[in-house]
Design a protein around this nucleic acid. Sequence first.
DNA 1: AGACTCCTGTTACCGCAAGTAACATGCACG
DNA 2: CGTGCATGTTACTTGCGGTAACAGGAGTCT
Lengths: 218, 218
Amino acid sequence: MDTTQRTDQQRSADRRRRELLEAADRVVLRDGPQASMNAIAAEAGITKPILYRHFGDKGGLYAALAQRHTDALLDSLRAALDAPADRRERVEATLDTYLAAIEARPQVYRFLMHPAEGSAAPGDQGEQGFDVGKHSAPLLRRMGEELAQVIEERLDLGPGSQQLARVWGHGIVGMMHAAGDWWLGERPCGRAELVRSLADLLWGRLAAAGDRVGGPGF
Amino acid sequence: MDTTQRTDQQRSADRRRRELLEAADRVVLRDGPQASMNAIAAEAGITKPILYRHFGDKGGLYAALAQRHTDALLDSLRAALDAPADRRERVEATLDTYLAAIEARPQVYRFLMHPAEGSAAPGDQGEQGFDVGKHSAPLLRRMGEELAQVIEERLDLGPGSQQLARVWGHGIVGMMHAAGDWWLGERPCGRAELVRSLADLLWGRLAAAGDRVGGPGF
DNA sequence: AGACTCCTGTTACCGCAAGTAACATGCACG
DNA sequence: CGTGCATGTTACTTGCGGTAACAGGAGTCT
């Protein structure tokens, strides 16, 4: 029978694939998102065509790579979201988990946000269509959807709750992402303070704040 | 005297520059962010080296191009933000202005968000340093700072107000951006509804919502 | 054993886009 | 007239994504 053999082959191929991914990981960790296929192949001790046989094209490799990290991060976030604590604490824990992750591995984070910009084959017509909307990083989309689901499951939002939950999911994730990005660059404060500020924002302090009196002008 | 002459030359150079930018604009509007320098030069009726003389490198051109659109958008946003209305109305008007802009010109929007990914010269060593933090689009950063300033000017946030305002500025902009991006791709609802949902989020409805009872599980 | 197949690996190449060097031309000033 | 100087060109280099085409090695069938 050839099933055992095929299984064997598949197994070895999978192992190979994982090794290649780990090599790619190392390179991306070192060179950032613009790591070249040549560099990755060299790091893995092989040459380009093998990479292409395994992953199709650069987009494929990057997608596979991104999925690993995305899955890992999403697992952490789910844990924080599902902890048995009150809402505010859960929100803060989730924000903190995300920020800790991007703080720990900035290059990986950057790679996840800008996976494969170009990705146009030579013979390819280059997608005349707009392709708008898919522009965002898959990680952001997945986090948004995930959060939306949790919100919709847990909160009573009245009619149109599903729509609302999705808007909020993507909105909150975007808030977290942008604030985290800015914070990583400027480091204007500690992580805990950032977390508290963002939670305050979500808790409506913007709407509750009073107008400033005696400000400049009027 | 050469001042008049220099002025003349500078004037004509500036005119050329503007013409080139308009040509580039047309190409980007058509081809998206991956417009090639050759294509832009062709559209302008000239050849590559002239572009390089004017803008240095692709990053320079893209930066100049981005600045125009960013300035224009920021002007609209400032108008909405400074309108004589109550806070909720101003926030909604600002959100709506932004969303209307990205809805009207998706390619430009996309270009602004992913200006120049690669941008590494052949001989360049490619910035061994991390370069983390600058990864975000300049447009987002500028919007965040702008909003932060308005918040800090107008709201009474107590001690640490400046820090808080900046966090909120970037956070809100990120929320707007991510939600807008997702909305552009999926079009799950009308613009007005999206605006209302986001404003609700900022108004603390997330914290105020009750726990769902009779949900799946517990 | 020998032919067949499949997987792994290589070298050498194509096409394309960024960026540059070197050469040509029009035009003002002395 | 020649000397700058900006504008424009053609032709090139470099580097990267991606692809043929070829070269063993290991199991399989007859």
